[in-house]
């Protein structure tokens, strides 16, 4: 009826035996015996081989901490030796060209392009300006690289009377806000400058003109 009934006393007996054995083992110091056998089994160790290590290569950081900045600086000295363009678009300059101003870009090959500045993208040597104008009653937008060797000079024709409260004046593409043609403003500005002559014109503009001339030489 109960198949495990016989097993139970047997198990109990074996457990008692184990206990008994354990008592015995404590008396005969089995630890020593174990260590001796282990020592016999393990071979004597060889002295550790030295792992070859190599020194790190010389760090490029030690040579030039910020190569991009260095490259930009070198490019700027090449493309803008007088620093006039940098000054015209640096935020530290209080007379900086801002969005909303009417700018005139004179090119080495081709006609000058004038338009209202919608966006200034300041990216070091890649700095560009987005001008929007109208030619033959068709709206035209042009991106120019400020430091392009193709650009002879950039002039501020007219400043926005109030500072624009947006960084990008894309809303000026909408017919409601479109400035239309800036041709008349530019012509007026050029006439005024021609009347004033080279010496009497605005100090900044004259300086810039001289700078560009020097740059061309």
């Amino acid at each position: 009826m109960r198949p495990l009934a016989r097993l139970k006393p047997l198990l109990r007996l074996s457990r008692a035996c184990k206990q008994h054995q354990r008592f015995l083992s404590t008396t005969t110091e089995p630890a020593n015996a174990w260590t001796s056998t282990l020592a016999a089994l393990t071979k004597p160790r060889k002295p550790a081989k030295e792992i070859p290590t190599f020194k790190p290569p010389p760090s490029a950081r030690q040579i030039c901490a910020d190569p991009i900045a260095a490259l930009t600086a070198s490019q700027l000295t090449q493309l803008d030796p007088t620093g006039a363009r940098t000054r015209l678009f640096s935020r530290k300059n209080p007379e900086v060209a801002r969005v909303g101003d009417v700018l005139l870009v004179r090119l080495k090959n081709g006609d000058p392009f004038a338009g209202v500045c919608l966006n200034i993208r300041r990216r070091g040597i890649d700095t560009g300006i987005l001008l929007r104008g109208q030619l033959t009653r068709v709206g035209v937008e042009m991106w120019y690289k400020v430091y392009s060797p193709n650009v002879e000079g950039i002039e501020v024709v007219q400043r926005r009377e109030k500072r624009a409260r947006r960084a990008r004046l894309y809303y000026m593409r909408m017919p409601k806000h479109d400035m239309g043609s800036v041709e008349n403003i530019v012509r007026q500005y050029q006439r005024k400058r021609a009347a004033l002559g080279t010496g009497g014109s605005k100090s900044k503009d004259s300086a810039k003109k001289n700078n560009t001339k020097r740059g061309r030489k």
């Binding site: 068709v138 042009m142 392009s148």
Partner: peptide
Amino acid sequence: VRTAKKYQRPDGSVVKFDD
């Protein structure tokens, strides 16, 4: 002869017309 999609010239300038 004109596209409203802007396109880049080899000198880096970009042109876009309104129509």
